[in-house]
Simulated scan of single mutants.
Amino acid sequence: MEQVILVDNEDQQIGAMEKMEAHRAGLLHRAFSVFIFNKKGDMLLQQRATQKYHSGGLWTNACCSHPRPGEETFSAAQRRLQEEMGFSTSLEKAFDFTYKVKLDNNLSEHELDHVFVGEYEGVITPDVAEVRDYCFKSVESILESMELQPHKYTAWFQIAFPRVVEWVNINAGQKVAV
Rank of each mutant, 00 (worst) to 15 (best):
L81I: 02
L27Y: 07
C64W: 00
A94G: 12
I124W: 10
D11K: 13
D96S: 05
G15R: 01
L45E: 04
T154V: 00
D8C: 08
S65L: 01
F74E: 14
G118N: 11
K152S: 09
L112R: 00
M43E: 11
T60C: 04
E121I: 07
M85I: 03
F87E: 03
L6M: 06
G57R: 03
E111S: 01
S141G: 06
V4A: 05
E72T: 08
V164W: 00
M85N: 10
E84Q: 14
E84V: 14
V123N: 13
K93N: 11
E144V: 09
A31N: 09
L103D: 04
Y153K: 04
S55F: 08
K102W: 03
Q3C: 11
G26D: 08
G56D: 08
I142H: 01
F161P: 04
T125M: 12
A155Q: 14
F136Q: 08
G173E: 10
R80Q: 05
R48V: 01
V7R: 07
P150Y: 00
E92G: 11
L107N: 04
L28P: 07
R79M: 03
K19Y: 10
G57Y: 03
I5M: 11
V123Y: 12
F97Q: 01
L112V: 02
F87Q: 02
E140V: 07
V101I: 07
V101Y: 12
E83A: 05
V117A: 09
L112F: 02
Q51H: 15
A16M: 13
A25N: 13
Q174M: 15
E21C: 10
A155V: 06
A94V: 00
M1T: 13
A155S: 14
L103R: 04
N169A: 11
H66A: 05
R163H: 12
T125W: 05
Q78V: 01
M43L: 15
N171T: 05
L91F: 09
H151D: 13
E21Q: 15
I14P: 06
L103M: 08
L81R: 00
W156Q: 06
L45M: 06
A129N: 15
G41Q: 13
R48T: 01
D8S: 10
E166H: 13
I142E: 04
T89W: 00
V168G: 12
K40L: 14
G173C: 08
S141I: 05
D133S: 15
K39C: 11
M146Q: 14
I170L: 14
L44V: 00
V128I: 11
E121F: 10
C135H: 10
G70R: 09
H29Y: 09
K39A: 15
I142R: 03
M17Q: 14
L112G: 03
K100T: 05
F157P: 07
K102Y: 06
E140W: 04
V168N: 13
G122L: 00
Q78G: 07
Q51F: 08
M17N: 05
S33G: 15
R132F: 12
P67L: 03
N106A: 09
G15S: 06
E130S: 15
I142C: 03
Y134Q: 12
Q149S: 12
R79Y: 00
G57C: 08
Q82P: 08
T154P: 07
I14V: 15
A49M: 02
S138Y: 03
R68E: 14
Q12D: 11
F161W: 00
L6I: 01
V101T: 10
L45A: 04
I14T: 14
V34S: 02
L58A: 04
V164H: 00
K137N: 12
S90P: 15
T89C: 14
G26W: 12
